[in-house]
């Protein structure tokens, strides 16, 4: 029987269970750590199928949704908890408990989600950071909406990775790095554009895993590289790249 339930992980990830089986499998999921991990991975696979179906939404949809949003309150984890408590107590006024918490609430839910969605990172909730992320979110949205926007990335065996969304026509790119850790001492991670010939051009110093928006990226650049440099950065790289990423698949390096 348990074996039988395990085999439902893939159909579940594809939403290919009927309501009864779905509920039964979800009860099992709550008890089975391994299945939860497996479903998570299979879901991420299924989502790749979703991406391939992307199509521009009708313009009228945007207006309708944004209008509705202006008049629709957001749930919050606190309000939800309060609501559940009041429901457990049999309160006849769950909406009052919910309303009470709304002011704290709406602070960053959608903003955190947009950043998580765009960059695959969870947001530090500090407001100044949030503003930065929002500005970056705007930039990345601009790059993403370019007709020639492409993304690529890679990760080495040690988990050090670099990802880029780039538009050759805009000469812009948004770059994120992962798994590099903090540079030693007061040194910094510096990003470079590397061309076929000539010397690498500095694209600036990286701030942890905060996405770096790069403008004026020459289409002759063949790769991006990150090196460790003294504080403030160097005019030219003084060490071997920690990570490097070819840009051919995103329309550069011509």
């Amino acid at each position: 029987m348990r074996r039988d339930l395990h085999s439902l992980a893939a159909p579940y990830a594809l939403d290919a269970l009927d309501g009864r089986e779905r509920r039964r499998f979800e009860r099992h999921l709550g008890r089975c750590e391994r299945c939860a991990g497996e479903v998570r991975a299979l879901r991420e696979d299924a989502v790749r199928l979703a991406w391939s179906a992307a199509a521009p939404a009708p313009p009228a949809l945007r207006e309708r949704v944004l209008t509705a949003v202006r008049t629709t309150p957001q749930e919050t984890p606190r309000a939800e908890a309060a609501w559940q408590q009041s429901r457990a107590r049999g309160s006849a006024h769950p909406s009052r408990a919910r309303a009470l918490f709304v002011p704290f609430a709406t602070a960053t839910a959608a903003a955190a989600l947009v950043v998580a969605a765009l960059f695959g990172v969870q947001l530090d909730r500090a407001q100044d950071r949030l503003d930065q992320e929002r500005a970056a979110a705007h930039e990345i949205a601009r790059v993403l909406s370019a007709p020639d926007a492409r993304s690529t990335g890679q990760q080495d065996a040690q988990g050090r990775g670099i990802n880029v969304v780039a538009s050759a026509s805009l000469h812009r790119a948004v770059v994120t790095v992962t798994g590099l850790g903090a540079p030693p001492g007061d040194r910094v991670h510096q990003l470079w554009a590397v061309g076929k010939s000539g010397t690498p051009r500095s694209l600036g110093v990286l701030d942890g895993d905060t996405p770096k928006v790069v403008g004026g990226l020459n289409t002759s650049a063949t790769s991006l590289a990150v090196t460790t440099e003294p504080a403030g950065g160097s005019p030219q790289p003084t060490s071997a790249p920690l990570v490097q990423l070819a840009l051919k698949s995103v329309g550069f390096g011509e």
């Binding site: 979703a50 991406w51 179906a53 992307a54 199509a55 521009p56 939404a57 009708p58 949809l61 945007r62 949704v65 944004l66 949003v69 959608a110 903003a111 989600l113 947009v114 969605a117 765009l118 929002r134 979110a137 705007h138 949205a141 993403l144 909406s145």
Partner: peptide, 15 residues
């Protein structure tokens, strides 16, 4: 922020 989110995901969601 939601408008940004809309811009990023409405295509994949609608498609």
């Amino acid at each position: 922020a939601f408008e940004e989110l809309y811009g990023a995901v409405s295509g994949p969601v609608y498609g």
